[in-house]
């Protein structure tokens, strides 16, 4: 078996192990599924009337894609927390003593978290439909939109996997990710239009991959109201720009995470 194939098959075995936990501790799932519903309802009804997005689309419809983006990015915290928890458990000793791929624990964790993200996207989409969100482009585009969200979330979960092993404590990882992800998602066009930012802040928003992820989703779901926000290249080519970020994150953080896993487990 080649190394890559083995990493994937071993990773899948570990992913199945993580998914069994959903069955045994369904409370975890409740938390994962409730917070997206809460976000959709909170932003739609609390800010729904106060913010006026560009174009003709109504705010709730425009907002949903932003909430999708924010929630899947926040979901990566789960990866970090899950790994941090694993590292404190005896099962890692078993994994380490097996002739399995060194990256399988990480591949497994990031893969099982894709399943979490799929579930939370389904829940959010349904909640969104209830409050007035609609898919206005073709179904193919919509599927591409969801796929891009999942792909970006997958990349970010490798970042959090790395962080999760640097600070092997579930509490610390939750706080650490909050510090990074909170500004990343709020200094973006997820909740307010790019135009409402000025100067340097606007440039940051335009080149923030969370913005382009949001913009891509709006375009693919057809929620832009026919309005292209600003002239920055990133905002004009949001899908391509987001994919470039996905590639960069994976190329940098996947090897870093694997290396950190080896370091952490060989002490």
């Amino acid at each position: 078996m080649s190394t890559a194939v083995q990493a994937l098959t071993d990773g899948w075995v570990v992913a199945q192990r993580n998914l069994i936990k959903i069955k045994r501790v369904p409370e975890v799932l409740v938390f994962v599924l409730i917070s997206p519903i809460m976000f959709v309802l909170l932003f739609a009804f609390v800010f729904g009337g106060a913010i006026d997005p560009p174009g003709s689309v109504n705010y709730k419809e425009w907002l949903i894609a932003g909430i999708f983006a924010q929630t899947v990015v926040f979901g990566a915290t789960f990866t970090g927390a899950g790994l941090a928890e694993d590292m404190q458990k005896g099962i890692i000793d078993r994994f380490r003593s097996l002739p399995m791929s060194g990256s399988a624990v990480l591949v497994g964790r990031t893969t099982s978290d894709v399943v979490y993200n799929i579930l939370s996207l389904i829940i959010m989409a349904l909640t969104g439909l209830l409050v007035g969100w609609r898919i206005r482009e073709g179904i193919v585009d919509a599927i591409l939109g969801f796929a891009l969200l999942l792909l970006f979330a997958y990349a970010v979960s490798w970042v959090m996997a790395f962080v999760g092993m640097l600070v092997p404590s579930v509490e610390v990882i939750n706080n650490a990710s909050f510090i990074v992800i909170m500004p990343l998602t709020f200094v973006s066009n997820a909740f307010v239009p790019t135009e409402s930012f000025d100067g340097v802040l606007r440039t940051i928003v335009e080149w923030n991959p969370v913005s382009t992820l949001t913009q891509s989703s709006r375009e693919l779901f057809g929620n832009t109201g026919g309005f292209s926000p600003t002239d920055a290249w990133s905002m004009q080519n949001p899908v391509l720009y987001t994919l470039i970020w996905v590639a960069i994150i994976l190329v940098v953080f996947a090897p870093l995470a694997v290396r950190q896993y080896r370091l952490t487990t060989s002490k």
């Binding site: 069994i20 045994r24 501790v25 099962i91 890692i92 000793d93 078993r94 003593s97």
Partner: peptide
């Protein structure tokens, strides 16, 4: 090992 390396779930 000294600590049972099993997954409790």
């Amino acid at each position: 090992g000294q600590y049972a390396a099993v997954d409790e779930h």
